[in-house]
Design a protein around this nucleic acid. Sequence first.
DNA 1: TGTCACCAGTGATACGTGTCACTATGGTTG
DNA 2: CAACCATAGTGACACGTATCACTGGTGACA
Lengths: 332, 332
Amino acid sequence: MSLPPTSRDVARIAGVSQTTVSYVLTGKGSISPATREHVLQVAESIGYRPNLAARSMRTRRSGRLAAITGVAIDNQMRMLNGAAHVANEAGYVMETHSFDGTVEDRTERVLELTAGGQYEGILTFVPVLSAALSNGPGTPPVLAATAFDDKMHSLGELADASLLEVFISALVAAGHRRFAHVAGPQDYASGRARAETYLACVERLGVESLGVLGGEWTAEAGRQAVLALPDDAPPVAVIAGNDILAVGVFRGAAERGWSIPDDLVVTGWDNAEFGAYTTPSLTTVDVDFEAAGRHAMHLLVAALRGEEPPPRASALQRIVWRESTGRAEPPR
Amino acid sequence: MSLPPTSRDVARIAGVSQTTVSYVLTGKGSISPATREHVLQVAESIGYRPNLAARSMRTRRSGRLAAITGVAIDNQMRMLNGAAHVANEAGYVMETHSFDGTVEDRTERVLELTAGGQYEGILTFVPVLSAALSNGPGTPPVLAATAFDDKMHSLGELADASLLEVFISALVAAGHRRFAHVAGPQDYASGRARAETYLACVERLGVESLGVLGGEWTAEAGRQAVLALPDDAPPVAVIAGNDILAVGVFRGAAERGWSIPDDLVVTGWDNAEFGAYTTPSLTTVDVDFEAAGRHAMHLLVAALRGEEPPPRASALQRIVWRESTGRAEPPR
DNA sequence: TGTCACCAGTGATACGTGTCACTATGGTTG
DNA sequence: CAACCATAGTGACACGTATCACTGGTGACA
């Protein structure tokens, strides 16, 4: 097992200097087409690939961006894909680091990443302390792509719960007077925003609320929430924090013999694939996670280039009316 | 904006040589406790962190492993987390690269990764051509955590479709005589293995088969498969390639007025969370993706250390009988 | 013909680290 | 006292690349 070929090997075989090889590969110097072609051919023939560590050391540019994510959340994959796409377009390689543990643990690991000198920018999709965002001398910028606390930097598109008002308004217009919210965890910005919007909205419209139930992003929490409703709850409109909670609501309703949408109407959030195929199909909010990921990475790239940040992407969210809300339609 | 401190800066301030700083940090030379303490304190005070690119260039060891993944597949996040955990335990940092495009594209990018000299090992969860696995001189090992073609290296736990025989046998024992398979894409090892096992099994048991339908991991494909069945198909047992296909089958059945499990019995695969909460709930195969990810990374780490690969993890898969198969139970 | 500009390519150097070979010092042993 | 050894630390160098400063050659133009 020999060592991988270097640019010097290419130079020696091609009969030119290592400098020439470097200029050919970076396309920077002035090199004649004939020489360029020849060098490229030699490089190809011996399977030469630049050593990126050496290149990075020399240029102080790694061409690499880091994306920080946490435990398994399906939607994050889509965001990551969107972000990776933009990064590639901008000439960067994006790598994903999955950090578990407490906020402090994650913050420490992000700091290690910034100081390691391997990344030109870092985008985090999970909460970190603001200490990780205040960049020291010579450290790469760290951008948080999710809102999580008032004290922390945020973008916030994904936590926007304004469409929940549209749900409730449309259902009220369709005659519904009694509501319940099956919420996600309140330490998630999105879960908290939806619960707060729900409470403000039922208050403002003066309709009855059976309270905020749930508290986890699980189907079982949705099921339990329905099982906990009083027997005379129907007809009631159940606003679920996301689609997996909603499918639990479906199950709970079936167990109690309640029909959807006659006894219960149900809304979800996220537009998970299965929601379009349940019976009844699930009214929900389509969230363009990929676009959100793209937008976040656009912000990071703009920051790296010192450009003006692109305008906030609009219409990341869109209501999809389906059978679980009966004939309730959006106001026209 | 000044440059980040180097080991020379630490040495200068501490009044020692750069060599001494290096020995302190790597713990290799013979350094007196007093000097060691002093150097560490200086390094801490000026916020020194080793430049990993330079270290990697010198040692030819990066301490980094790459995991290759594709588009959004929920289960991959779990596998990645399992793999990352094992990598960290073994003293490595695992980074995830998400590669889209054709198999050729992915293969090319994997080759770039191997040749870049930044990774000591690569684990891919998506199909690549065997060209990426045959490592050249000095390139890191590439391990495919999924079987996809006879010509390619494979692990294959996840592609194990033997439990599909249990499904069919149990359903035959319960009186079913007519079957259909709604398959996943055949360039996925798991999709192909399930289709092949299905065909072999109906052949062996001498039961009627309405064929292999589907071809994508989407709910719509499942729905279309049911819509394509002949009117006199029921009673029929539908073996779906995974849970999202199965939920499409549910929908298709509802649209045709077929009842589950009376007219159709349905099985899925993967034990997605929603499957336990649909009505009827979905019989499926629980797959321990996290354990699969751990096992795959164990294999890579063992290969890197030149150790014997660990024994194949057992019981990664387990059938979960639910309502969609009626009273069909496993043979005792 | 002399001068200037430009092209194609080269030599040398620096990036920050780890490690080999070496030195100075002090202590132990015969 | 001489010989030897372990300890603590240093100087020099190499890893592979990009880039600055430079050279020799060629053609254009006055």
